Measured scan of single mutants.
Amino acid sequence: MSGIALSRLAQERKAWRKDHPFGFVAVPTKNPDGTMNLMNWECAIPGKKGTPWEGGLFKLRMLFKDDYPSSPPKCKFEPPLFHPNVYPSGTVCLSILEEDKDWRPAITIKQILLGIQELLNEPNIQDPAQAEAYTIYCQNRVEYEKRVRAQAKKFAPS
């Protein structure tokens, strides 16, 4: 494992614990031996107030490669969400998460999670990743928002 990646992720964890947006979660997972795995984080993004996503808490896994922060983490909703920019596998399609697009090593975990929260309610229809959600979003916004509200209710924190 890269010392650069681990040191950056340790800084990220410290900064997150000191200050993070209300309702968001970002925690490194534990290895079988109980030690912390900084390369694999369990996160959760709350649906934004005043949107059909409100009330939901959407679980996301963030996986970092050894060359982080040169390369972005892979962000994957578990379980996958109904959304035009979420692949059926759950992987998020967002330009700041793509090395050859808008990724920059200075982007923080907090910025990534806030960017994904923004994307939930403002899909990028130029870059669809899920045919069904994309089609319904474009053709029947009322039905799309109904499905999103049902999903938010399903993923409401207990």
Score class of each variant (00 low, 15 high):
120 L>G: 04
104 R>F: 02
90 G>C: 07
101 K>D: 14
92 V>Y: 04
134 Y>Q: 05
107 I>N: 14
49 K>P: 05
144 Y>H: 03
40 N>C: 05
131 A>N: 13
54 E>R: 06
51 T>E: 02
56 G>S: 02
91 T>Y: 10
53 W>K: 01
37 N>D: 14
100 D>M: 15
57 L>W: 08
145 E>V: 13
46 P>S: 07
58 F>C: 05
133 A>I: 04
90 G>S: 03
125 I>C: 11
105 P>H: 01
156 A>R: 13
83 H>W: 03
17 R>H: 01
12 E>H: 05
71 S>T: 10
72 P>W: 03
21 P>E: 02
114 L>F: 11
40 N>A: 15
85 N>P: 02
116 I>A: 15
31 N>C: 11
148 V>C: 12
67 D>Q: 10
146 K>D: 14
64 F>T: 04
157 P>T: 11
56 G>Q: 04
64 F>L: 11
149 R>T: 09
55 G>C: 12
134 Y>M: 09
115 G>Y: 06
76 K>T: 15
38 L>F: 10
38 L>C: 07
89 S>A: 13
136 I>D: 10
53 W>C: 03
21 P>A: 01
87 Y>N: 02
111 Q>K: 15
2 S>W: 02
39 M>K: 07
92 V>W: 04
66 D>C: 12
51 T>F: 05
126 Q>E: 13
102 D>W: 10
109 I>W: 08
130 Q>F: 07
60 L>Q: 05
9 L>T: 03
50 G>T: 05
68 Y>R: 08
82 F>I: 04
105 P>M: 09
58 F>L: 05
126 Q>T: 14
122 E>M: 12
150 A>Y: 13
115 G>M: 04
68 Y>L: 02
133 A>N: 01
119 L>D: 04
94 L>M: 04
138 C>N: 15
118 E>A: 09
40 N>K: 11
79 P>H: 15
131 A>P: 10
54 E>S: 12
30 K>E: 07
52 P>G: 14
51 T>L: 01
43 C>L: 04
12 E>Y: 02
103 W>Q: 00
21 P>S: 08
86 V>M: 12
73 P>I: 08
133 A>H: 05
140 N>D: 14
144 Y>L: 02
85 N>Q: 02
76 K>Q: 14
27 V>H: 12
9 L>A: 07
37 N>E: 14
72 P>H: 05
91 T>N: 11
72 P>M: 00
10 A>T: 11
42 E>Y: 12
53 W>H: 02
135 T>K: 06
39 M>I: 07
90 G>E: 00
132 E>R: 08
43 C>N: 11
47 G>Y: 10
120 L>V: 06
81 L>V: 12
109 I>R: 04
147 R>I: 08
125 I>T: 09
157 P>I: 05
132 E>M: 09
57 L>P: 05
17 R>C: 01
23 G>M: 02
40 N>D: 14
65 K>A: 04
32 P>V: 10
135 T>V: 14
121 N>P: 06
7 S>L: 10
155 F>L: 10
32 P>E: 10
74 K>R: 14
16 W>S: 05
45 I>F: 07
44 A>E: 13
135 T>D: 07
28 P>D: 06
36 M>N: 00
132 E>N: 08
77 F>G: 00
97 L>R: 03
80 P>Y: 14
49 K>F: 13
151 Q>R: 00
108 T>W: 14
119 L>R: 01
46 P>N: 07
29 T>V: 07
131 A>R: 05
3 G>V: 10
80 P>Q: 09
23 G>K: 08
45 I>H: 00
102 D>A: 13
22 F>Y: 10
40 N>T: 09
103 W>F: 11
13 R>L: 05
157 P>M: 07
157 P>D: 10
106 A>Y: 01
105 P>C: 12
103 W>P: 00
35 T>R: 02
37 N>M: 11
122 E>I: 08
122 E>V: 13
60 L>S: 06
99 E>L: 00
141 R>E: 03
123 P>H: 01
109 I>S: 04
63 L>H: 12
15 A>C: 12
156 A>I: 08
70 S>F: 09
152 A>C: 04
60 L>R: 05
33 D>L: 04
51 T>Q: 14
113 L>E: 02
14 K>W: 08
141 R>V: 10
49 K>M: 09
126 Q>M: 11
29 T>Q: 07
44 A>I: 11
